[in-house]
């Protein structure tokens, strides 16, 4: 039997099993859900071993004889001491190294890319000579300032401060609305993808 046909039928069954939850929770859905969790766990374990540990550690040691990789290897193994209460403190060495390195690497890059560059993009001229572009710039400036005011909690949001904070809420709501609109689009896209699979690949209706 062609394995493609078999895998298509299994995928179609599992798709319908998952979609059956839309009617109500049922044993077929539960079966598909548990199967998904179990298969995913096994898949990721094997995949990470073969695509992370083997090329990044075992190959470097055994094939390339790069012995410095013993150090990260030992640090990685130390994480497993969390399973042994008597020496659990050893795992903190690995975590300390990981957190220290991570913070050192992440903070400068994040400040540069997420803070400085975004701040620079906010410092725009309110009048550009073009009405449309000017309106956009005004919206950017007013939006950023009013949302920042909304998140300023050291004074009660009353009077002018309250008014600006309320304007900030409107900007946030519009932002959430845009995100929700895109989310709806994304979810419908996934449904379309599943229907295309069921109708085209499984039932060959086109």
């Amino acid at each position: 039997m062609d394995l493609t046909i078999l895998s298509t039928w299994i995928a179609a069954f599992l798709t319908l099993a998952i979609l059956s939850f839309l009617y109500k929770d049922n044993p077929v859905y539960k079966f598909a859900e548990h199967l998904y969790v179990g298969v995913s766990a096994a898949y990721w374990m094997v995949y990470y071993y073969n695509n992370a540990i083997v090329p990044n550690l075992i190959d470097r040691l055994v094939r390339d004889h790069r012995w410095l990789y013993i150090i990260p290897g030992i640090l990685g193994l130390l994480i497993f001491t969390r399973l042994i209460p008597r020496v659990v403190w050893l795992s903190r060495w690995a975590l300390a190294f990981y957190i220290g390195m991570g913070v050192g690497v992440v903070i400068p890059a994040t400040v540069q890319a997420m803070l400085v560059a975004q701040l620079r993009a906010t410092l725009v001229p309110i009048w550009t000579g073009n009405v449309g572009a000017s309106i956009v710039n005004i919206l950017v400036v007013v939006g950023v300032l009013s949302v920042l005011v909304y998140f300023f909690f050291s004074r009660e949001h009353k009077g002018a401060l309250g008014g600006v904070a309320r304007l900030g809420i409107y900007f946030l709501m519009i932002s959430f609305g845009a995100s929700f609109g895109y989310t709806v689009m994304a979810r419908i896209s996934l449904l379309i993808g599943r229907f295309q699979f069921l109708f085209y690949d499984w039932l060959h209706l086109r």
Binding site: A109, A113, S179
Partner: peptide, 21 residues
């Protein structure tokens, strides 16, 4: 943050709908 800001590589993005905004 890294390829773009740090190394100056031009970066484009194709994102899922959920992420786009």
């Amino acid at each position: 943050a890294y390829a773009g800001a740090r190394f100056g590589l031009r970066v484009g993005l194709c994102a899922t709908g959920v992420m786009t905004s």
